[in-house]
Simulated scan of single mutants.
Amino acid sequence: MDLPDLAWYCEVRAEVYGLLARLFRDPPDERLLAVIRHPDFVREWPVGRGQPDVDRGLERLAAALPAVDPDALRHEFWHLFGTLGPAAAPPWQSVYLDREGALMGEETLR
């Protein structure tokens, strides 16, 4: 990979990671959901093509997005990460590794 290709590749990866970070932090708003629903979004996804898991995930995403209800998506997001009560999937490693499922417990201190 020559230097201009490497710079482009790094820029693309940075944008992908920025998008993933945004989706992890907050559910997509109407504008972002419209961008993600556009057929070119999945068709032109720039990272990981040719890897079976990535290709399969993108196919599933393209099939599921048209039916996504924005309100249900927001509710599911907040339920998943615990804003509406106990988290269905806590995003903290210590919950899974600590013997008692504690946050900031022994595992965190290690």
Rank of each mutant, 00 (worst) to 15 (best):
P28W: 07
G50R: 08
A87S: 14
F24Q: 09
D98S: 10
V42F: 03
M104P: 00
A87M: 08
A102R: 15
P90T: 09
A72S: 14
P52D: 11
Q51Y: 08
P27A: 11
A34N: 05
G48L: 05
A72D: 15
P66Q: 12
P27Y: 04
L73W: 06
L23W: 09
V35Y: 02
D26Q: 11
G105Y: 04
W92N: 05
P66T: 11
A67R: 14
A67P: 01
D98I: 04
G101E: 07
R49H: 07
L109P: 00
T108P: 00
G82Q: 07
A89F: 14
V68M: 09
Q51D: 14
W45S: 02
L32F: 00
R74S: 14
E100D: 15
P52S: 08
A88I: 13
R37V: 03
R31V: 11
A67L: 09
E100Q: 15
D55R: 01
D29Q: 00
A88H: 13
R99I: 02
P39N: 10
E59V: 06
R110E: 11
T83H: 13
E107R: 10
A102T: 12
D55C: 01
L19D: 02
H79N: 14
P52I: 07
L97I: 02
R31Y: 00
R37D: 08
P70W: 10
G82K: 06
R110S: 06
E44F: 13
A34S: 14
R22E: 15
A64P: 01
P66N: 11
R43Q: 14
R31W: 01
R37P: 00
P46F: 01
A89E: 12
L103D: 10
E30W: 01
H75Q: 14
V47D: 03
L58V: 04
P39Q: 08
G101S: 06
R25E: 12
P70H: 09
G85L: 06
Q51V: 14
E76N: 10
A34T: 11
E107K: 07
W45D: 06
I36N: 01
L73R: 08
P52W: 09
P28I: 05
D40F: 08
E107Q: 15
A89G: 00
T108V: 04
V42L: 02
E106G: 02
P90G: 02
V68Y: 01
R43S: 10
P91T: 12
Y96E: 06
A89K: 09
P46V: 03
T83E: 15
D29M: 06
H75G: 00
P86V: 07
P28R: 08
A21S: 09
L33R: 01
D55F: 00
L80F: 12
S94I: 03
W45A: 00
A62R: 14
P66K: 04
Q51W: 06
G18S: 04
A87I: 07
L19T: 04
R49A: 12
P70L: 07
Q51F: 09
F81H: 07
E100C: 05
P52H: 10
R37I: 05
V42Q: 08
D53Q: 14
